[in-house]
Design a protein around this nucleic acid. Sequence first.
DNA 1: CGAATAAGAGACGATGCGTCTCTAAGTCGG
DNA 2: CCGACTTAGAGACGCATCGTCTCTTATTCG
Lengths: 193, 193
Amino acid sequence: MPSRRRGEELEATILEAAWAEIRENGYQRLTVEGVAARAHTGKQVLYRRWPNRVRLTVAAIRHALGPLVPEVPDTGSLRGDYLAVLRAMAARARHYTPELLYGLLSEMPEFGGEVFATLPEVITPILRNAAARGEIPTADLPERVAALPLNLIRYEGLRSPGAWQVLDEAAADRLFAEILDQIFLPLVCRPDC
Amino acid sequence: MPSRRRGEELEATILEAAWAEIRENGYQRLTVEGVAARAHTGKQVLYRRWPNRVRLTVAAIRHALGPLVPEVPDTGSLRGDYLAVLRAMAARARHYTPELLYGLLSEMPEFGGEVFATLPEVITPILRNAAARGEIPTADLPERVAALPLNLIRYEGLRSPGAWQVLDEAAADRLFAEILDQIFLPLVCRPDC
DNA sequence: CGAATAAGAGACGATGCGTCTCTAAGTCGG
DNA sequence: CCGACTTAGAGACGCATCGTCTCTTATTCG
């Protein structure tokens, strides 16, 4: 008979079970009973740690995807840097099916804070570097402008959710290029760029 | 004893009952039983018309809010026209609580087509008028650019949902002005605008 | 006027949440 | 090394609500 698991080990098993259930059946059909069964444990063990289904799900996502904020890229150009950020975001977004994202937001609107973060920790340094290189006249952009590509990408993901799941890397890059070249760069660069 | 209702009359009563329940209790707590009770009818009468709770809700929204596409405004300037469109959209958005919007989208992702429409029927004429007046060099903008303010407003509504419900008209107008003046107009107008 | 239709009312089975209860495995202080 | 405490593992339970089914009877239509 296998020994009983505890603490970290048990917790990790449960969160991985939850994440597996989500990937296989989606969030709507995620049941606490199902997760418990898959982790070979009882419901009470889950409810001892998370107060309800939503919070369990959030914990599972965080466990599976790791920290939200990506590294600050330094590719030598504003375009390259921002592109790197968009790629990192898209990689993360690929795990959010529409059904999962909307389901979570409907039951826990404050989760939006996590999903819609403006990421100044990343964007501000990028803009400062660009200004130092002389690519843009000033790094001091209104937040709405600084986060524009970020927001547009996210909007794209909300608007045609599921799109990330089928978009190959080349197609995603084309989308990023469109947003950067048609909208963001014309808006922030000195006229001659 | 009151006579039994039928057809249009009964249907309208039901949809109004559903909408009232949504406004009072939100979508999550909308129950088919509750709607039936409020409309003084039986569940079967609802299920005879709509296959499930989501579809009933969508029907109730359409009944309450009317057609999606607003009139084409003609204020004499691109800024004024687009502002009018944004105001019309915001008026509609005010009825979508986060909980309602996300709930619907999670259970019926294709509803996004309705919520995220690019509204070319409205935007294209506006741009054509602006071009005819000489405000912009060409009316032939990429769709992504033409719909930019629309998308940003909607993103704003998704990002801080519930915000519309508390935003007074002046504050909403400030937001629209920010988006038009900082982003859209600089992007599409001839340099001297 | 008689037959067909559909309203109004509610019982029913299924599902799944969150709570509660029980036994025994593992941990820890003395 | 042992007795007390904690908590894992298992599942029963009550409750809400979905969607289906059944029944009676008012209304409509041929």
